[in-house]
Amino acid sequence: MSHGPDASKKNSRTTTATKLAIGLGVFSLALGAAELLAPRRTSRNAGLKAGDLTMRAYGAREMAAGVGLLVAKNKTPWLWARVAGDVLDLATIGATRRDRQRAAMSLAAVAGVTLMDVMAARTLQAEAKREKAPLRDYSKRSGFPLPPQEMRGAALQDFSAPDDMRAPKQMRPHEAEDVSS
């Protein structure tokens, strides 16, 4: 058997990381809209005393990131942009907190979202790197001398599971007849 490179092929798929990036884009749009349209209330709910102009600027930033994540084919730069924004948000919470309890909750929420942004960005980067490499074809590596369907049960001619690895007879649900289909 050769263990060198086999024939290659490409594949394409929508990964969970891409889905997460889209979710973060929707989240960005929602948060951005709140910051743009109701800056004072958003600031108060977050336990902050940030000015309206600051909140609106942050809202515009969120909207831009949201649109980027939903529209761009390569979402990774937009995720890193969100991470940079998250860092700014964390600094702002630290600098402008008014209500300690709410600010702490905001801090925890932003930290959680930051973690998701970083993980999504890193995974998409790894996937992009992987997509560039040709995939190997292992579709003929069965390890069997015959097609798998002809190997089904081949070991049963001279093997039975030891008693300590079998279920007690009374608890074997499918032995008497085929009830699985």
């Binding site: 190997r136 069965s142 049960g153 070991a155 049963l156 093997f159």
Partner: peptide, 29 residues
């Protein structure tokens, strides 16, 4: 996978997300 096939399972299902590994799993039945 190969062991379950040799031990006579009616159906063997494998779950992964790597195309090469899934191709090898399919090759094994």
């Amino acid at each position: 996978i190969r062991s379950a096939v040799l031990l006579g399972a009616r159906q063997v299902i494998c779950i992964d997300n790597q195309p090469e590994r899934l191709a090898m799993a399919k090759a094994g039945g």
